[in-house]
Amino acid sequence: MKAFNTIALLLLSNSFMTLAWYGHLKFFSKDSNHAATPLWMIILLSWGIAFFEYCFQVPANRIGSSETGGPFSLVQLKVLQEVITLVVFVIFSKLVFHNLQFSLNHFIGFALLVGAVYFIFKG
C-alpha cells in the first residue's frame, strides 16, 4: 500500500510541477490574451502552483523512503520520480501543446530511462 500511495502522490506532485514549469509557455504565450503579463507575475504564479507540488512530493518521499519505513531506497525513489515526470510531461504536452511531435529518438530515450528503472530496482 505504501508503494501505491507513493506513486499516486508522485503522479499528483509531478502534475503540479509540470503545470508550474511549462504551463506558462502555453497560457501566457504571444498568442494568448495574457501575453503582456510581466515575467515577475508569471514567476509568482508558477511558485504558487509549485507549492502544491511540494505538498505531494514531500509526503511521497516520506511514505516511500526506506529511511522512514517505506519500500523504496533513495535511489529507487529518485529514478521512479524521474520516469513519472516523463510520463506526466508526455501526457501534458500532448494535451496542451497540440502541435508537439515526438520523434523516434525521444521514444528511444524514454525507453532507456524505463530501462534505468528496471536496473535500479533489480539490484
Rank of each mutant, 00 (worst) to 15 (best):
Q81K: 09
K26L: 04
I49T: 06
F110Q: 04
L9V: 02
N14T: 06
F89N: 05
V83G: 03
S65G: 07
A50N: 11
G70C: 08
V75K: 14
A116Q: 08
G23F: 13
L112M: 15
I7F: 11
L95E: 11
W47E: 11
K78I: 02
A20S: 15
I84T: 02
P38L: 12
F72S: 03
H106I: 05
F102I: 12
E82V: 07
V75F: 14
H98N: 12
T6M: 07
I7P: 02
W40D: 14
K78V: 01
T37Y: 12
F27W: 07
F107G: 02
K122R: 08
V114R: 13
G48S: 11
R62M: 10
L25T: 11
G70R: 04
A50W: 12
G70W: 02
T37S: 14
P59M: 09
M1H: 14
H34W: 15
F102T: 14
G109N: 09
I49D: 05
Y54Q: 09
D31Q: 09
F97I: 06
I91R: 07
S32P: 13
K78G: 01
P38F: 06
N61H: 05
P59Y: 12
H24Q: 12
V83R: 02
S65D: 03
R62E: 04
A8F: 07
L9Y: 00
F97R: 06
K26Y: 06
G70H: 09
L113A: 08
I63C: 08
A50H: 12
A36P: 03
P38E: 14
K122A: 06
F4W: 14
S103K: 12
Y54A: 04
F119I: 10
T68K: 02
T68Y: 00
L74D: 11
K122I: 00
W40Y: 11
V58R: 11
V83S: 00
C55E: 07
F121C: 04
M41Y: 12
I63T: 07
K26T: 06
K122P: 01
N33R: 05
N61D: 07
N105W: 14
F28I: 00
N61C: 02
K122H: 08
S29Y: 05
A35T: 05
L77H: 00
N99D: 15
V88N: 00
M1P: 03
L86H: 04
G123F: 03
T37W: 04
L80M: 15
K94V: 13
F52V: 13
K78S: 00
C55V: 10
Q76C: 08
P71H: 01
F89G: 10
S65I: 01
M17H: 06
I84G: 01
L80D: 00
V58I: 15
G23S: 15
K30C: 08
N61R: 04
R62Q: 08
